[in-house]
């Protein structure tokens, strides 16, 4: 490769074609890499909590966790419904003080004031990002799709633990839910 190979015309054509095909394969590989970024990104965000993605914890694991009674963390609750969803969606209280490691509980209330059935799902987000993976939900209405009949009002529970591993620098964590209309069945 230091100098170009000295070849006759036919041999050079073969060499050129071979190199061109290899380079095309590199391009195809990187097209695949573009798509592979989707699961990679997802895994990366889950691993680091960078995206504000919250952690999940099995109920059985709770008993083993140590409660840190020496400090308090304030958890703030936010709620949004996407424009056009027509859902009235609020937490029962806007903030709560918890000890890291202790199981806490809060209800969100949603009302469907419209006259049609609403199927949707809430997507959680925690800020600041570094707190996200230490915010573990044991039970959450956001795990599944929710259906509301016209006029229905419903309390929806969230059970969570703020892990004691949360950095000492943080005294406030904000949990936000955004309600989306579930994807419509394609007809």
């Amino acid at each position: 490769m230091e100098t170009s190979p000295v070849l006759d015309d036919a041999a050079r054509q073969v060499a050129n074609r071979r190199l061109a095909i290899r380079l095309a394969l590199v391009a195809v590989f990187f097209a695949g890499f573009g798509f592979a970024l989707v699961p990679l990104y997802d895994a990366f965000c889950r691993m680091t909590g960078l995206d504000g993605r919250t952690g999940v914890m099995a109920a059985s694991a709770v008993e083993n966790s140590q409660v840190d009674y020496s400090r308090w963390v304030t958890v703030e609750f936010l709620s949004h419904a996407m424009p056009g969803v027509g859902l009235e969606f609020v937490p029962e209280q806007f903030k709560m003080r918890v000890h890291p490691g202790a199981v806490a509980h809060i209800n969100y209330v949603a009302k469907n004031p419209t006259d049609r059935r609403f199927i949707g799902q809430a997507v959680p987000n925690v800020t600041p990002g570094i707190a996200a993976k230490h915010f573990k939900k044991i039970e959450c209405f956001c795990f599944t799709q929710q259906t509301f009949q016209p006029g229905e009002v419903r309390q929806m529970p969230v059970t969570f633990v703020v892990s004691p591993e949360l950095t000492q620098d943080l005294s406030t964590v904000t949990l936000s839910y955004t309600f989306y209309e579930a994807v419509k069945e394609r007809s």
């Binding site: 590989f29 990187f30 097209a31 573009g34």
Partner: peptide, 13 residues
């Protein structure tokens, strides 16, 4: 060769 296929994949998404 490294970046254009990634953009092509992105706009396909």
């Amino acid at each position: 060769i490294l970046i254009m296929p990634v953009l092509a994949g992105g706009v396909t998404m």
